[in-house]
């Protein structure tokens, strides 16, 4: 395997593996609440964080974490108060995030290719410092989801009933929001900010075509996410395309296969 001969590839593969596990673990709860596009929103907002990091000459991952957590909390507050205008408020936040990032990066003298790396992922960009951050944060996200699994399921299933059960609903909602924000920044190097949401949502959408239970969907999606993430990264190395693109195309292909399998199964059962 010549692919493993390069340090940056080894780092990239480890990052892809962990991100592949972590992203669908958050994604399952977003899909459960029908908030599949939240990850996209946070990705847009995180872009401003990246721009800020480049401008301030500090680690863009760090500033992206901070800004996207702020964005995710803001999105959650808007969701909680959601009236008819909630949808528009979110849209404004998304556009602002993307526009802010593009301006800040240009102000800092960044190049278009650096910009593309953040938006669509880049193979060579995971430094060993980045890897330490990615590994730590992915494990924290996964552990948190596991510890709060039961409560998160109850809250995402029915918020009112969770309230009356005495669960800390607002805390749990913020946990999902912050978890999503952390996952977005962790996945930024490999899949890129514009495609990170796909890694959260597509494995869940795929597995739920074939599974019956919530647990089955959650664990299946994490496994599938890891396979697709690593597979897509390898593909990007050999095909010389941005990893975000190959990971998502591979995931979507998996979705198509599962959709066909599900419809065949339905016909056979009938």
């Amino acid at each position: 395997m010549t692919i493993l001969a390069f340090d940056f590839m080894r780092r990239g593969l480890i990052a892809a593996l962990l991100v592949g596990f972590a992203a669908p673990s958050i994604g399952t709860f977003l899909v459960q609440r029908r908030l599949s596009l939240t990850g996209d929103g946070i990705g847009h907002v995180a872009f401003t964080g990246v721009g800020l990091g480049v401008l301030l000459r500090t680690s863009p991952v760090l500033t992206a974490v901070v800004v996207s957590i702020l964005g995710a909390v803001l999105i959650e507050v808007v969701r909680e108060r959601a009236q008819a205008s909630g949808d528009v408020a979110l849209a404004l936040l998304f556009y602002g995030g993307l526009a802010g990032g593009s301006i800040l990066i240009k102000l800092a003298g960044g190049t278009n290719s650096a910009l593309g790396g953040y938006l669509f992922g880049s193979l060579s960009s995971v430094s060993s410092g980045d890897l330490a951050v990615i590994v730590t944060l992915s494990l924290v996200v996964l552990a948190t989801m596991l510890v709060f699994l039961r409560e998160l399921f109850a809250v995402c299933q029915d918020e009112d009933v969770a309230h009356v059960s005495g669960l800390p609903v607002r805390f749990l909602n913020l946990l999902v929001a912050v978890g999503a924000a952390v996952t977005v920044t962790v996945a930024m190097r490999t899949v890129g900010l514009l495609l990170v949401s796909a890694l959260m949502v597509v494995p869940v959408a795929t597995v739920q075509l074939l599974s019956r239970s919530f647990r089955g969907t959650l664990y299946g999606a994490c496994l599938l996410g890891a396979v697709m993430s690593v597979g897509g990264l390898v593909l990007s190395y050999y095909a010389d395309v941005p990893p975000g693109g190959s990971i998502v195309v591979l995931s979507l292909t998996g979705f198509l296969v599962a959709a066909i399998a599900a419809s065949v199964r339905k016909r056979v059962v009938r």
Partner: peptide, 20 residues
């Protein structure tokens, strides 16, 4: 309806009533 965007079994939904 019971709702939720991800499949869940009857047993899982009923068990969530013990969470509190």
């Amino acid at each position: 309806s019971v709702g939720g965007g991800v499949p869940a079994t009857v047993g899982e939904v009923v068990a969530s009533g013990r969470t509190g």
